[in-house]
């Protein structure tokens, strides 16, 4: 250290310091920018991979540039959320034409492949993104608020307990049990099939999370009254009243009557 200290007034010292400073800055800058460049490259790769998957699996109906055809809509501007929902629940690619695309399991693509296709579609035009884990965390939602919003906006098609319901001409509102929080959120922001779109203006992101919390609570809640009969309301109750209730009682009456005559 003394040798270094002795030479601190050397004429080249300033130049060397400047040199060191420049090198450090340059290396740091290079390190930082090269990281971004790598990320940019991988995002481009993902979009490229997504495009390949799209061309192989989706373009037959949606067109080579996702511009849409007679029976399949344009995917420009539907966003990553729509792809994640439709492909992630197995609805797309649709195996056969029908009133609406049914939920299919198991899903045919890995999560990475779905993400790649979502990235490709998202690159075509701005649209709703895949929500973050925090956006859909049921633990952060308000169940009571969710039940109120669900009842006002969703129950008319999906039934009070999210069991689903009939729409016109074979279409239906799907049952919501077992649907992941991400997919519920994405369905709300993209409005798949017959479902309306609930933008952030109609139902705020927080309220969407409340709905997710409510649906989670419905799934986890025990049935305090016993068998729920599918939560379909009075139709199944009437069936049970006649078949189980009255059926059993008539059986008892026949048994009592048979004892004597």
């Amino acid at each position: 250290m003394t040798a270094l200290a002795a030479r601190r007034r050397h004429p080249l010292a300033t130049a060397i310091l400047v040199m060191i400073g420049l090198i450090v800055t340059g290396v740091l800058y290079a390190a930082a920018t090269s990281g971004k460049a790598a990320a940019a490259v991988s995002a481009a790769d993902e979009i490229e991979a997504g495009k390949k998957l799209f061309l192989a699996n989706c373009s037959t109906c949606h067109g080579l540039n996702a511009e849409g055809r007679r029976n399949a809509p344009s995917l420009v501007g539907v966003g990553a959320a729509a792809v994640d929902f439709q492909v992630g629940t197995g609805r797309m690619p649709m195996a056969a034409t029908g009133p609406q695309a049914p939920k299919v399991s198991p899903v045919r693509y890995t999560q990475d492949e779905i993400k790649a296709m979502a990235a490709y579609v998202a690159s075509l035009g701005p649209g709703p993104a895949i929500p973050s884990a925090e956006d859909v965390d049921p633990a952060k939602g308000d169940v009571a608020m969710g039940s109120l919003i669900f009842r006002t906006n969703c129950a008319m098609c999906h039934n009070f307990a999210g069991k689903g319901g009939a729409l016109t001409r074979g279409k239906y509102a799907a049952g919501l049990e077992g649907v992941t929080p991400e997919h519920i959120y994405e369905a709300m922001v993209t409005g798949p099939q017959s479902m309306p779109v609930f933008t952030d203006q109609t139902i705020s992101p927080e309220n969407k999370r409340d709905i997710i919390a409510f649906l989670q609570s419905v799934e986890e809640a025990p049935a305090p009254g016993g068998l729920s009969l599918g939560s379909f309301g009075p139709v199944t109750e009437g069936l049970v009243a006649w078949l189980a209730g009255l059926g059993l009682l008539v059986g008892c009456a026949v048994w009592l009557g048979a004892k004597s005559s």
Partner: peptide, 25 residues
Amino acid sequence: VTINPIWAYGGYDPSPVTAGSQPDW
């Protein structure tokens, strides 16, 4: 067997309605 789970239906409000609204048999 559960019958008429009113807690799940929620209180009455003229604006909402649930799919599968039926009366008793």
